[in-house]
Amino acid sequence: MEKTKRQLFTNYYIKMKRMILGMQGTDGILFKLLIYGLLVGIGFVYIYPLIYMGSYSFKSLDDLLNPLVNWIPTQLYLENYKRAYEVLNFIPTLLETLYVAAIPAVAQTAVGAVVGYGLARFDFKGKKVIFILVLATFIIPPQVTLIPRYIFFNELNILGSLNAFLLPAAFGQGLNSAIFILIFYQFFRMVPKALEEAAQIDGAGHFRIFFTIALPMAVPGIIISFLFSFVWYWNETYLAAIYFGDSLTTLPLQLQKFVATYQQMFPAEMGLSGNKLNEGIKMAGTLLSILPLLIVYFITQRWFVEGVDRSGITGE
């Protein structure tokens, strides 16, 4: 009787130990706790600026000054957003940003598909050189080509119009074009050769094969390229500021001059303390300017993740 009790206890002890420490060190509760703890902790630090932004954007001046109000504002205060909305000139700027980001993204995707197809499906002299040059364009900082392009665009008289973005993009020299060519290269390499040969026997030309067989098989690639390109053009402020000057603006650019615009619209010397710019309004402006991207991201996030998987840099 005594013995069995002890046996039972040892059994129980071993079971507990296995549960906590695991069989091979990777499936115990302790290990799991550690992993989840780390992931949640790092994840929190990661999105801490976003939480901060969200919290501050709803704070009224009283809440901002009150040291007792930490994360949760005492009331639902929307005045910050109203102000920021006006300063950013939200809807017109949003439409302009969409125009500035989407059209070059379409061009870049189209040319990426065409060039990627050429590199993936044909053999010709100098293909290797071209391939290396494509990769090399990725590491050339845009600043080096910026000045000559600026002079060149000035002569073509396309500074201040979307063409300054669109032309390089349409010829595969836009933002990170090399990555998109690489993605399509990877996709088209996976199209079975037999399919192409069968179509050729049926009398289809190369361009018909490209449009009716290859492109439909690369639809995920098209979506991925478009999304990445869209986001990168959206966030581009350095080149946009130089090429567009004052004639085109985007939400990030408006955010950049937020303070100046605000002071122009709501002069502080009127004696109204409510007119002064505070963190709440700034954070509301920042959040408004990234809100469209956040929405796009949450709808399409699986494509972004897949984009990295499918770019083939991990080797197929």
Binding site: V231, P252, Y297
Partner: peptide, 11 residues
């Protein structure tokens, strides 16, 4: 991955 989407200079 979220920061990749929103991290523009002004933000």
């Amino acid at each position: 991955f979220l920061p990749v989407i929103i991290a523009s200079g002004p933000v």
